[in-house]
Amino acid sequence: MNRTVGVLALQGAYQKHVDCLSRLGVDTLLIRKASELDQCDGLIIPGGESTTMSLLIQESGMYEPLRDFAQVKPVMGVCAGMIMMSASVDDQRVKPLQIMPFRALRNHYGRQVHSFSADITLDFDADGDTFHAHFIRAPGVETLANGIEVLATCNDESVMIGDGGHIALSFHPELTDDARIHAYWLSNINV
C-alpha cells in the first residue's frame, strides 16, 4: 500500500517538501484542514513564519488535531516547524504544539544578514558526505530531555534532533537536492 505524507500548507515552504517527497516516490497531500489529517501516514510541518503558522493553526481549529495526530503518527518539523513541535518557546507570540520535549529559541542565529550555509555531518550517515545545510533566521534548541537524540550538530549546537518517529531541524533539507534527511525520516517511520 502506498503511503501518503501530509505537508501542513497554512504558510511557508510547503511546496518544496512536496517536490522532495515526490522525487522519493511518496504520495503527498497539502493539509489546510483538520479532517485532511485522516488520510496521512505522517506529517511535515515546514518552515515559514512561526507567529503566522501558530495563529493559523489555532484559527483553523487544528491545534488539538495536530497534537492528537503526533501521538500516533510521525511528524517532521523544519525551522518554524521545529518551533511548533517544541514544548516551549522563548516568545509568547507562538503557542507550540508540545510534540517533543525541548525548548525552541526563535531567530537564535539573528536576522537575515546572519543567515548562513554550513556543511554538517549527519550522525545517521557519519561515513557519507556532509550535508549542505541552509540556516535561515534559524531557531535554536535549548534543553533536551531524556529520550531525545541529537542527530546533527553545527558549531557544537544541536541542529537536528529526534525521538524515533519525530524529528526536528533548525535548517532546511527541502532547499537542497539532497534527499537523505527526508529518506531517513521515511525509513524510520515504517509506514
Partner: peptide, 20 residues
C-alpha cells in the same frame, strides 16, 4: 567565496514567506 550560498539562503527566505 560565498555568492552562490548567499543567493541560495536569500531565495530561501523568500521561500519561507510563501503563502503569506
Amino acid at each position: 567565496d560565498n555568492t552562490q550560498n548567499n543567493f541560495d539562503v536569500n531565495v530561501g527566505l523568500a521561500e519561507m514567506l510563501k503563502g503569506g
